[in-house]
Design a protein around this nucleic acid. Structure first.
Lengths: 225, 225
DNA sequence: CTAAATTGATAGTTTTACTATCAGAAATAA
DNA sequence: TTATTTCTGATAGTAAAACTATCAATTTAG
C-alpha cells in the first residue's frame, strides 16, 4: 500500500478546492509545467485551459486569478518543504547537525516526490526559485498577509529561526538569519545559473558551493565554526 | 553654479534617449511616481501617458515596453548608488570602515539627490526594494544579460566584492557575500515593513537594526569582528 | 529652399483578464 | 418516483492592456 501525502491548504486561496476534483488536480499539475516552461508573466488562464483541454471560465471557478494560483503553488511548496525538513531532521538531536541538514535541503536540487502525484516537486522548486518572491512582492502584500497566505513560508522561517536559537540562544538575529538562508539558497542558485558573476560558483554551477557558502555564513554568524 | 549629475545609460535599453527631451524626462519622473504609488503590475503606458498628458504611442517611442523601462530605472539606481558609494568612501583607506559605510548606504533610507532633478531617489529606492528583482527574475534574463542590462548591478557587486577581499584576501566567497548584502539590505527592509515576523526588527521598524544585522553577518563571515 | 527625418497625435488590432449566462448531469428531498 | 436544487463544464461576451500603423505638422540637414 502506498502512502499519499495530503497538504491542507488555506481555504481562502481558492474558490474551489483543486485537490478535490480531476480538473482541479490537472490545474495544479499543468500550471506547474506551464509556469516552469514559459515563466509566470507569459502564463495565462487561457493557455492553461487549452493545455488541459478545458475552458478559461473553468479555471476561474478554482482560482480568482493567476496571482492567487502562484501564491497557492508556492505556499504548497513551503508546506511540503517544512514536512520534508521535519521528516529528515526528525531523529537528529544536535541542533548544529540539524541546521546543516536544513541548509542542504534548502539549497539542493529537489527530485519528484512519489507521495504526491499531481505535483512535480523538481519543477516546483525551480518555479519557487525564479517566481517565488513575486508571490509577496506586490502592493497588496498587506491584505494577502492578513489572509494568512504566507503562513507556510513564515512557519518554515520560524522553524529555522528556532533551530538557530537552539544552536546559540544569545544570537540576536535568528529570524533575519533564517529568512536570509532561505532567500539566499534560492537567489544564489538563480544567480549561479543566470548571472554568474554575482556568485563565486559561476564556473562549476554546483549546489555544493552554495551549501558551503551558506554553512560558512551561518556558523560564523552564530559562532559555531 | 549647480553641478548636475548625468548617468550614461546603456543605449540598448531605450529606443530614444529619455534624458534628451522634455517628454523623455517626464517619462522617467512620472513613471517613478506611478510605479511607487500603484506598483509595477498596475503600471501601464496608458496610465503613464494620461498622467503626463501625452499619448501611449509617445511613450512607446522611448521604451519598447514597461519591463524595459523598469530595467532602465533600476539600472539607473544602481549606477547612481555606485557613484554615491564612490563619493562617500573616497577618502577612507581602511577597507573595514569602507565596507561598514557601504552597508550603511545600502540599508539606509535614501533622500532625494539635488543633483538630479528628474529622479526622486527616495521613491526610486523604495521601488528598487519592492520591484527591483523583477527586472531580472524573468525567462529572458539570459538575453537581457547579453545586452549588458544588468551591468550597473554587477559592477556594484564587483566593487563590494573587492572591498570584502581587501578586508580578508583569504575569504572564499566575496561575490556571493556581496550579492547577499545587497539583496538582504532590501529584502530585510521589505520584510520588516510588510512581513515583520520574517525579521527581528518588526517592532521597531528601524533601518539601524538591519545595518547592525548585516554588519554582524559580514564581519563574522570574514573574521573581522 | 527643399528633402529627409523626427515629432506628436489618431485610430486601429490582438491578447489578457475577467463576467454573465446557460444547458446538462448529479445529488437530494418529498 | 419526480421535482428541485446544485454543481459542472462550455459559450459568449466585455473592458482593459499591450502593442502597431498611419499621418500631418514640424524640425533639421544639405
Amino acid at each position: 500500500m502506498k502512502l499519499k501525502l495530503q497538504i491542507r491548504m488555506n481555504e481562502e486561496l481558492f474558490l474551489r478546492n483543486p485537490e478535490q476534483s480531476e480538473l482541479g488536480l490537472k490545474i495544479i499539475s499543468h500550471s506547474i509545467r506551464l509556469i516552469h516552461k514559459n515563466g509566470f508573466e507569459a502564463f495565462t488562464f487561457k493557455k492553461l485551459a487549452t493545455d488541459i483541454g478545458t475552458t478559461e471560465a473553468g479555471i476561474y471557478r478554482y482560482f480568482e486569478n493567476k496571482h492567487r494560483l502562484l501564491i497557492y503553488i508556492v505556499a504548497w511548496y513551503w508546506s511540503w518543504l517544512e514536512y520534508q525538513i521535519g521528516f529528515h531532521t526528525n531523529n537528529i538531536k544536535d541542533p548544529v547537525t540539524r541546521l546543516k541538514k536544513v541548509i542542504r535541503l534548502l539549497a539542493s536540487n529537489v527530485k519528484d516526490d512519489e507521495h504526491t502525484n499531481h505535483v512535480d516537486e523538481g519543477l516546483l522548486h525551480q518555479i519557487v526559485i525564479s517566481e517565488g518572491s513575486k508571490a509577496y512582492l506586490t502592493k497588496h502584500v498587506g491584505e494577502d498577509n492578513k489572509h494568512q497566505f504566507f503562513k507556510p513560508y513564515k512557519d518554515l522561517c520560524a522553524v529555522i529561526g528556532g533551530i538557530i536559537s537552539e544552536c546559540n540562544s544569545k544570537y540576536k538575529y535568528p529570524k533575519s538569519l533564517a529568512s536570509t538562508i532561505i532567500e539566499m539558497a534560492h537567489f544564489q542558485n538563480f544567480f549561479m545559473h543566470n548571472l554568474p558573476s554575482l556568485t563565486d560558483f559561476g564556473k562549476t554551477k554546483k549546489e555544493e558551493g552554495i551549501i558551503a557558502f551558506l554553512n560558512d555564513l551561518v556558523f560564523s554568524a552564530i559562532g559555531k565554526k
